[in-house]
Design a protein around this nucleic acid. Structure first.
Lengths: 194, 194
DNA sequence: TCGCACACTTGACCTATGTTAAGAAATGAA
DNA sequence: TTCATTTCTTAACATAGGTCAAGTGTGCGA
């Protein structure tokens, strides 16, 4: 492990919260457990309670659920330097409806529900970081909702290409289609008309 | 004003954060300014920076934007005991794209950006409350996104009737249609087939 | 290096919802 | 009470995107 201040997680926290002390950094890092997960492994399955929230050091994950007809619906795709979990299950500590799966071999940091709750008391600055993180996540989710309601599939595809072009390099189009809220066939037709 | 502990705002904060001291309560209440706003008044217009976040004591508000064709798209409708703002503009302190409008005569509490930032330092428990609030808002937004992508308009209408039936008593159907992501004509057809 | 999943494309047809336009019903100000 | 405005409904027609079914590649494990 690199020196705390050079650590990726700390770097991203400091982007949003200033004046984190050395002690805080150490405390934070000690609470997170690094894990390595092979491609196509489930970190969470329906009916399990989501025990961890994950920071992606390197890799790629998706979260999705399977509807009554057996169709997968993807609601998150995450690459390096982002957070993933099923927050609904994590924060309520009740069974999840979702799968959480690696799409590539991934290096992750995870923190358990109990440890994070403690950590909020020990390092209030971390709670600030999460307040800001959820705030931004909420704003993004509303933007995505807006686009899904009121923009055409073509526009949503172009927006995604522009803002998350890297995902197209690493994730099969079937998953991207589902994330965009359309069928793979529709995505294929959109791409044909460049 | 009633005694702090009886105050609606404090009541809702205590629902999620325990052990708020009397002093904290007083500090919180002193930071929020009560205002009364007549029906059909704008609290925010596009290109203004959103200065406040509002707690609705009593009343009804919507937030919406107007697209290039001049069509209004509603993304939030809020009744008593909930929060409303344009968080994107509020937290970045940059110009908004949205309108924020009262749909009924309303009693609100508002806190400014600067005061809230101070208050987070003075009352860390309040920052915890907002962390939890945004967390829940984010989870809700994802649920709504999911429904918009993968459920029919009929199902979304029924879900809304079940979970926010009170809105139908107080808000014109045009607004509800927009909130559901459909046209008023479609909503009318859905309602005809009860 | 073979073969078989998996990923992606294509085409014919279908359906939910949008669009346009008109009118009916409800509300509220004079 | 009346008229104007806002809200809601209805109908005919249009269309984006879904569904079903049949392909064509293509990469990886044996």
């Amino acid at each position: 492990m690199t020196a705390p201040t050079d650590h990726k997680l700390i770097y991203y926290i400091k982007k949003w919260v200033k004046n984190i002390s050395e002690d805080d950094e150490k405390l934070i890092l000690s609470a997170f457990e690094p894990i390595t997960v092979k491609k196509k492994k489930d970190l969470l399955e329906p009916d399990e309670t989501c025990k961890y929230i994950y920071f992606v050091i390197k890799g790629c994950l998706r979260s999705y659920y399977v509807d009554a007809k057996g169709i997968e619906h993807i609601y998150q795709i995450r690459l390096d330097n982002s957070w993933i979990s099923d927050l609904e299950s994590f924060f309520s500590q009740r069974p999840s409806k979702y799968y959480l799966e690696t799409l590539e071999d991934s290096q992750l940091l995870r923190v358990s529900y109990e440890r994070l709750e403690q950590l909020y008391d020990e390092v209030p600055k971390l709670e600030r970081y999460f307040r800001i993180l959820f705030q931004k996540a909420y704003i993004n989710a509303l933007e995505r909702l807006n686009a899904t309601m009121w923009e055409s599939a073509v526009d949503r595809y172009n927006d995604m290409l522009k803002e998350h072009g890297d995902i197209f390099q690493r994730v099969p189009l079937v998953y991207i289609a589902s994330y965009l809220g359309i069928t793979p066939e529709s995505l294929s037709r959109i791409r044909k008309k460049h």
